[in-house]
Design a protein around this nucleic acid. Structure first.
Lengths: 208, 208
DNA sequence: TATCAATGTAAGTAAGTACTTACACATTAA
DNA sequence: TTAATGTGTAAGTACTTACTTACATTGATA
């Protein structure tokens, strides 16, 4: 609290705001919307509870602010042109790694969205799935281009994108969100390589 | 309430218990543990709130009862021997369909577990992942057998099982849990066929 | 007929919740 | 010096929550 006062007053407002948002997303993601209390958020953020309400007026609006503040678009899009100039397998490994890193970064946001979509679907389904569409389109456009070049066979690129997405999202979901890495962790590098290999070559023996 | 009284008194106790459990899992899954209230659960179940506490003593114990009551093991295991006598592609489609049906059946249980693993990991991580291990082992043992027979090439069967699992779990997760089917539904039959095809043949063009 | 088990009704407790109001304090800009 | 801004402290409101207690009611059974 005293800490905040030492900051330039112009920045003070936004610093306080960010501190509250940072604490809020953490508590919302672990305790759920109802389970997280405004008192605890304020305490952990090191501000008075009334300050929280002065910034966000209500708990519900704080949640909305949290969701829109952390829905950063992944830097995956910028990787696409590079990927097109790499060998297929190498590109897939790179995309997978980048994708997993992104997911870990927005872990809490995903957790919150997952819970909120159940609680008030009308409010959050569109937000979440437009985010997802953007992501899937990155993968799909990559596959479409490689199909044009004749590198890939003629599968549905949108469903292909979903398979690629599934493998790594599910890995992230298990290890990070469902705590498998605390239970029986899986070697990420090994998994990525094997997943990519399966995605490229499939499972069948007698080919080529 | 009057309805319950017409039931044989021997059965009455378990009927009431089940009604409460049925309502509880629905409310826990949509509103979260803190968001669901014992009053609402009792009202929706058509019993007095005090009856709920006479059956389960506390809200926390009700949650535990809910989780253990609905963690039914899927009938997938019994499909395995049949699958081994079917053509590979047909078997995979069958397993996928069965898996998706199972997931839809235990949808609420999965939702609750997903939330509770965040809230109190120590209590629920082991439960969830031992359930998952059992599931993955079914897939893995199938792949292992087909590798022995020389039908499949030599990939890691455990990671192969995770890829197979991922494709369909993620489909379920998106469509059912995250409400994509209300936003832009995907044709399940088509998706299953394409996913299986990709899993068998991979994405690469120049093979065979 | 009397007993017992499962339920209901009703009232209440103690604690917590989101949110408000009123006032004081410090820092900066006019 | 004064005014404005962002914050803290403190008290309080109206409501909800999980859970309890005491007593009445029902239906089957012994």
């Amino acid at each position: 609290m005293a800490i905040v006062r030492k900051v330039k007053p112009v920045e003070r407002f936004s610093v306080t705001r960010e501190r509250i948002l940072d604490t809020a997303i953490g508590l919302f993601s672990t305790k759920g919307y109802s389970g997280a209390t405004t008192r605890e958020i304020a305490q952990q953020a090191g501000v008075a509870e009334v300050t929280l309400f002065r910034h966000f007026t209500s708990k519900e609006k704080l949640l909305e602010a949290v969701i829109s503040h952390y829905s950063a678009i992944p830097g995956l899009k910028s990787f696409l042109p590079k990927a097109l100039e790499m060998p297929y397998e190498e590109a897939l490994v790179g995309m997978a790694d980048m994708f997993l890193d992104t997911l870990v970064q927005i872990k809490d946001w995903i957790r919150v969205m997952h819970a909120e979509v159940q609680r008030s679907p009308d409010k959050f389904i569109a937000i979440y799935h437009s985010f997802l569409d953007e992501l899937l389109e990155i993968f799909a456009s990559y596959f479409r281009e490689l199909q044009k070049r004749g590198v890939l066979r003629n599968f549905d690129p949108d469903l292909g994108a979903r398979v690629f997405h599934s493998m790594f999202y599910c890995f992230f979901n298990m290890e990070e969100l469902l705590g498998r890495k605390k239970y029986r962790p899986t070697d990420r590098t090994k998994a990525v390589r094997e997943f990519v290999s399966l995605f490229i070559r499939g499972t069948l023996a007698t080919q080529g």
